[in-house]
Simulated scan of single mutants.
Amino acid sequence: MSFTWRYVVRPDSSFCRVGNLDGSLDNISDEELARLHPKRDEEEHSAQSCSRCGTDLLLHWHGPLMTGVWMELCPACDAHRAAARAFIRWYRAPDRDPKALPKLFEDWETETMHSHGWSRAPHPEAPPSPPSLLRLAPRGRG
């Protein structure tokens, strides 16, 4: 079983990510995926203030399942962190490249979770292939 994320970047540059279990979404275009995951009304009215300094956040996001971490992207508090700084630049850019989002988001998520004491587990290695079976011909008598 494999698991990856598919990112939906809308024309207003808001985005969501959708779990892609065993490649089930690989054959769905970005446009179709965007239609399947429209922006919810509560997303439009979800302005939040930074819990550290009170500045408006660029982004707030729940951390990975079961961690209880609330991730905040604050231009004032996070600009010193490399991954956050790169994500802030992308987020503020007028011509955002949607293809850059997955790496920027995942780097920021990794950096943020690390600051909360979590680390990302390495991707498991592919299981070794089973040994090839040799067919043995019966030995001749003699």
Rank of each mutant, 00 (worst) to 15 (best):
F3P: 00
F3E: 14
T4C: 04
W5P: 00
W5Y: 15
R6N: 06
R6T: 03
Y7A: 07
Y7K: 01
V8K: 04
R10M: 05
P11E: 14
D12W: 04
D12A: 00
F15L: 02
F15Y: 15
R17N: 12
R17P: 02
G19M: 08
G19L: 08
G19D: 13
N20Y: 09
N20P: 05
L21N: 05
L21V: 12
L21T: 10
G23Q: 08
S24I: 12
L25D: 00
D26A: 14
I28D: 00
I28R: 02
D30G: 12
D30M: 00
E32A: 11
A34T: 04
A34I: 02
A34N: 01
R35D: 08
H37T: 10
H37L: 00
P38E: 03
R40W: 02
D41G: 07
D41F: 09
E42N: 10
E44Q: 14
H45I: 09
A47S: 11
Q48I: 00
Q48C: 09
S49T: 13
C50D: 11
S51C: 07
R52W: 00
L58G: 02
L59D: 04
L59E: 09
H60I: 12
W61T: 11
P64L: 13
P64E: 13
L65Q: 12
L65A: 15
L65F: 04
M66C: 08
M66F: 13
T67H: 00
T67R: 03
G68L: 08
G68Q: 08
W70P: 00
W70Y: 09
M71E: 06
E72D: 12
E72V: 12
E72Q: 11
E72H: 04
L73K: 02
C74Y: 06
P75A: 10
A76Y: 04
A76K: 15
A79K: 15
A79N: 14
R81W: 07
A82V: 10
R85W: 01
F87G: 06
F87D: 01
I88E: 07
Y91F: 15
Y91G: 06
R92Y: 01
R92G: 13
A93V: 06
P94T: 14
D95F: 10
R96F: 01
L101T: 07
L101K: 01
L104G: 04
L104H: 03
F105W: 15
E106V: 03
W108M: 05
W108T: 05
W108L: 03
T110V: 04
H114E: 09
H116V: 04
G117M: 04
W118P: 02
S119I: 09
S119C: 03
R120E: 13
R120C: 10
A121G: 04
P122H: 05
P122M: 09
P122D: 14
H123W: 05
H123S: 14
P124V: 12
P127S: 13
P127L: 14
P128S: 09
P128T: 05
S129D: 11
P131Q: 11
S132W: 05
L133Q: 13
L134N: 06
R135L: 11
A137Q: 13
R139N: 04
R139P: 08
R141V: 07
G142A: 15
